[in-house]
Each structure stands twice: as C-alpha cells, then as structure tokens.
C-alpha cells in the first residue's frame, strides 16, 4: 500500500473543504469589503436545521434546500440590516461586527439544540470510489467538484457578466465605482446572497465530513481565513489552490510523528510564511489600504 499516496488523497479531500470554504469568503470580501467571521456560524445554522429536518424524517433534498435557505437568509439579513450601518468604517471594524453576529448565532444554536453529540449523514456518504487505495465518499468528491466548479464559475461570472464587472469595480475603488453609477446596494446584496448560498453548502459539507457541532463549525472559519490570506483576500483561484495545498501538507505531517500533534496549526503557519514571502522587499511609505 502506497502510504504517501493515501495521505495525499486524504489531504486533498480535507483541502477541498478548506478551499470550498475560502471561495465564499473571498467573493464577499471583494464585493463588499467585509471579512465575514460569521461565515462558519451561518453554515452551521443551516446544517443544524438540515439535521433537525432529517431527524423529523423529511426528505433529504428538502433538508438541503433548508440548509442553504437558512444560510442565505442569515447572510442577506446581516448584509441588508447590519452591514449598511458600518459601511463607512474601517475593514477591521466591519470584520469584528461579523464576530458579534457569529456569537449571537452560536448562542441561538446552542439554545435551540442543546450541546450533545450529533452526526449528519447524507445519501452521498454511501457512495465511494477508491483513489490510490483510499476510499473517497461521494460527499467528499462533491465538495471537491463543487469547489472547482464554483471557482471556475466565479471567475467567469466576475470576468464576463455585468454584475461581475461591477463587483470588480467595487473591489478596486468603492467611491469611484459608486460615482461611476455602480448600484452599490444592489451589487452588495447579490454578493451577500451568493456568499450565503456558498456558506450554506459549505456548512452542510463540513457538518457531514468534519463534525456536526455548532461551535466547531463556527470557529473553523479561522483556519479557512488562512487560505484566503494566501489569495490576498481577493483571488478565488489562489485561495482554492492554497486550501488544497494546506490540506495536503496538514495530512502529510501526520506521517512525521514529532510534528503530528502540531499539524492542525498548518493553515496558520503556511499563511504567515506565504504572506511574508509575498510581501518581501516591500516597504510602506505612503499611507494606503494595505
């Protein structure tokens, strides 16, 4: 049995999760300038709802729809009700406001669903294929394929469509874009919507493949942010690739016993090293955004 191959495939399947998580974060940050710490909590709320519906023996497709719907509604609610109040503030203040939202969501979830071990099982879990000797379930493949699809699709969307153009304009310079007639509110709402749908799907995947635990899912956003940093918070393909790479590295570290307990820190360490390397030789002279 080729051990390296096993860990490689295992790493890719985890990396696919990191990568998928990063896409929605980057998209939202590009279009609205908000780094969403509540991304994980929104997905968790969707996943918990899906679990509840499955417990009540509702059909699985309905649970999927509910999961995505809840995350979408939460994302739109924050984007529509809270984000405008902070539109003129620094990016960091916008980011920490989302942390407040994440805490409120986490508290609500733990009130509704008392903390207890739970497991979410989807139909796709039953299917599997063997890759390099490792069995990979349908859910993992789905996460990877949707991740690739969304990365490509978002690339096309940003490059080819009018709304995509407006989003890019907003990301480059918000004031100039609004003077040029970009309907800021509408474009932002679309971004919150897409990001909410992705948060819901990601939440469902994480809940199935990682653990159905609101706190764990809420705070997984922090390692996912690591992947987006490597994409400089703007590049979806770079975030996606970084997610895969981090997953593989994290998995391979399990082979080296002395470092194995530290391997969960991989996203953070890779992000710091990558960021320092990308910024090498740069000096800040004039006050600017980064």
């Amino acid at each position: 049995m080729n051990v390296l191959g096993l860990f490689l495939v295992s790493g890719l399947s985890v990396g696919a999760l990191y990568a998928l998580g990063g896409v929605g974060l980057v998209l939202l940050n590009r279009a609205t300038g908000v780094l969403n710490f509540a991304y994980g909590a929104m997905g968790a709320a969707g996943a918990m709802t899906a679990w509840q519906l499955l417990e009540w023996n509702w059909p699985e497709p309905l649970a999927w729809v509910a999961c995505v719907g809840i995350a979408l509604a939460l994302s739109l609610a924050f984007g529509g009700l809270i984000a405008p109040g902070l539109a003129r503030r620094e990016p960091i203040v916008k980011a920490i406001a989302t942390l407040g939202f994440a805490l409120a969501l986490l508290g609500t979830m733990n009130l509704l669903w008392v903390v207890t071990p739970r497991k979410l099982t989807l139909t796709f879990d039953g299917l599997s294929v063997a890759i390099l000797g490792l069995r990979v379930t349908g859910t993992r493949l789905l996460a990877l394929l949707v991740g690739i699809g969304v990365t490509l699709g978002m690339g096309l969307f940003l490059a080819r469509t009018r709304v995509g153009l407006m989003m890019r304009a907003l990301a480059d310079n918000r004031q100039v874009a609004s003077i040029l007639g970009v309907p800021v509110g509408r474009v932002e709402t679309i971004a919150w919507g897409i990001s909410g749908v992705l948060a819901g799907f990601t939440g469902l995947m994480f809940a199935t493949l990682v653990r159905l635990d609101p706190a764990v899912l809420t705070f997984l956003v922090i390692p996912i942010i690591a992947t987006t940093i490597i994409g400089r918070l703007t590049s979806i393909p770079a975030s996606f690739a970084a997610g895969l790479a981090i997953g593989v590295l994290e998995s391979l570290l399990a082979l080296y016993k002395p470092l194995a307990p530290f391997r969960v820190a991989t996203p953070f360490i890779v992000a710091i090293i990558a960021m320092m390397w990308l910024q090498r030789g740069r000096r800040l002279t004039f006050a600017g955004q980064d």
Partner: peptide
C-alpha cells in the same frame, strides 16, 4: 512588528490572528 513594517490594515490584523491561531494549537500540545 516585522510584518507590520510591510503591511497594515486588515492584512496585518489577519497575520496577527494567524499567529494567535498557531499559538492556540501550540499551547494545546
């Protein structure tokens, strides 16, 4: 402070957050 010589704003904040994340894992071990 070393990253702060090259970055500011959200990027710097996130670098420090990554350091905090790494510390959280390290100290658990």
């Amino acid at each position: 402070a070393y990253p702060a010589l090259r970055m500011r704003g959200l990027y710097l904040a996130l670098i420090t957050l990554m350091a905090a994340g790494g510390f959280g894992i390290l100290i658990n071990v």
